[in-house]
Write a protein that binds this DNA or RNA. Structure first.
Length: 210
DNA sequence: GTTGCGATTGGCT
DNA sequence: GCCAATCGCAACC
């Protein structure tokens, strides 16, 4: 490292601390690395995300201010926010924005690159390969993410979940978020165009490249 | 203390 | 397209 370079961890934190919808778009194509260096390591490429903003977003857990559940969303970026819903499913988010400002990106779908045997063992061998991590609940189950992982720092060396940026720019489709009662019309869903692991109806609202 | 419900999923009509 | 499963939260009394 040249003299004067900022620490790598700080530079990465700044990347996650950008506006939530920008991070949501840029996370598509990144790799999720779970339990690296263990026999059950998994690498999966993110193919679909949704942005959940702070106190201005009626669909966000942060809408009414911090609660015991949502407090991680108000903390520093690059942490994991995991919540439990419908009495049976976990959903994983990447925290965005500056410390004190709420924002998070829901990880909706991913494509298994490595660790297929581990993911299949968790999801069952009747699930098709593209369906293994399709949908936020299935993604958490296939990766073994639970509330125990709530609040972990993605940049900490010992963390069991990391995110790696990858070269290349996949074609991104922008659409409406899925399963919402409020603010259902906002274009805050980002999908890898044409990827078979994308969940829900294929969004066709607009296409952008980066 | 009580209650209504959800950023889901899979199965059935 | 409709609906049950299943329970932690957060809103409300």
């Amino acid at each position: 490292m040249r003299r004067g370079d900022p620490p790598v961890a700080e530079r990465s934190r700044a990347w996650f601390a950008r506006p939530t919808e920008v991070v949501a778009r840029d996370l598509v194509g990144c790799a999720l690395v779970v339990d690296e260096g263990t026999p059950s390591a998994v690498v999966a490429r993110i193919v679909e995300t949704e942005a959940y903003l702070g106190t201005s977003d009626p669909a966000s857990h942060a809408y009414r201010g911090p609660t015991p559940r949502s407090r991680v969303m108000f903390g520093p970026a690059a942490h994991l926010y995991v919540y439990f819903t419908y009495g049976m499913h976990h959903c994983a988010n990447v925290v965005t924005e500056a410390d004190g400002v709420a924002g998070a990106v829901l990880l909706r779908a991913a494509s298994v690159e490595d660790g297929l045997q581990t993911v299949t063992a968790r999801r069952g061998d009747t699930v098709t390969r593209s369906g293994l991590l399709r949908g936020p609940g299935n993604l958490c189950r296939g990766l073994g993410i639970t509330r125990d992982d709530d609040g972990i720092d993605l940049l900490a060396p010992h963390s069991r979940v990391h995110i790696e940026r990858r070269t290349g720019s996949p074609p991104i489709v922008v659409g409406t978020r899925i399963g919402l009662r409020h603010a259902a019309d906002r274009l805050l869903r980002f999908s890898w165009l044409g990827d078979p692991a994308v969940s829900g109806p294929v969004p066709r609202d607009s296409v952008e490249t980066r």
